[in-house]
């Protein structure tokens, strides 16, 4: 791993901001203003009570007074069960616009996770129960994605008529999207009798422990990047 970070620093052309992006942080959902049906000056809604309170505390709300605000989206709610991170994943699971099904599947997977966690807790001897905290499936999923996000990926770059697989650093959003994709791929690769949500729950729990095939996939990719480090200079010449 240390050699990999070294490789990144040898790439050297990576600006500080890019390196900052490599640090694992929450997904920044970038709204596309390009095709928006709202005029440009409309601001995005702040529909979470805690976020809104923070706006009032920092005084930022003064600047937002009398600026028109877009309507909250259908998936937005100030309910405590809302997690923007999970909602984004639901959108990736969705096929052919069937969000109802996608949401059902992901929620079932989370139910399985919760049940397994509780079972684990009750099977422990009493002295170990103190250390074991039953974690929120949303939190567990967040941890799993952080564990699975790659630092570097391979990009085909054509030089002298030959395609080289060149290792390049990947930004936070792309890494998250890759992680989502790998979770879905791993959960789909199963026996016919096994349910998608059961497999997804298993993969998430494994990844949160830093084990399992999705984490292995990330490590394999990193290993390949390491192997192809000789091509790294093709990024800029």
């Amino acid at each position: 791993m240390s050699s990999l970070t070294k490789l990144i620093s040898t790439l050297a052309r990576v600006s500080d901001t890019k390196l900052a992006l490599l640090n694992h942080s929450n997904v920044q959902i970038i709204s596309s203003a390009k095709m928006s049906q709202y005029p440009k000056y409309f601001i995005d809604p702040t529909f979470r009570n805690d976020e809104l309170n923070a706006l009032y505390e920092t005084g930022e709300v003064k600047e937002k007074a009398l600026v028109p605000c877009r309507a909250a989206l259908t998936e937005h709610t100030s309910s405590e069960f809302y997690s923007s991170f999970t909602r984004k994943f639901i959108n990736h699971v969705m096929r052919k616009g069937n969000k109802q099904l996608a949401r059902e599947v992901v929620e079932k997977a989370f139910e399985v996770i919760k049940k397994t966690q509780i079972q684990k807790y009750h099977s422990l001897p009493p002295e170990k129960k103190v250390d074991f905290t039953i974690r929120d499936p949303h939190e567990l999923f967040h941890q799993a994605v952080i564990n699975v996000k790659p630092i570097m990926v391979l990009t085909p770059i054509k030089r002298g008529g030959v395609r080289y697989q060149v290792p390049v650093p990947v930004d936070d959003l792309q890494a998250t999207i890759l992680a989502y994709k790998w979770f879905i791929e791993a959960s789909k690769d199963k026996e016919r009798t096994v349910r998608f949500y059961n497999k997804l729950a298993k993969e998430i729990m494994d990844a949160a422990n830093n084990t399992g095939r999705v984490v292995k996939k990330k490590l394999d990719l990193h290993k390949q990047c390491e192997a192809n480090r000789a091509y790294a200079h093709y990024r800029w010449n």
Binding site: Y38, D44, P45, T46, F47, L52, C69, R70, A71, A72
Partner: peptide, 15 residues
């Protein structure tokens, strides 16, 4: 009311 406006509850979604 102002909080509701900032939460996007008082804007018609005309899309």
């Amino acid at each position: 009311v102002e909080r509701m406006r900032l939460a996007g509850l008082l804007q018609v979604d005309w899309r």
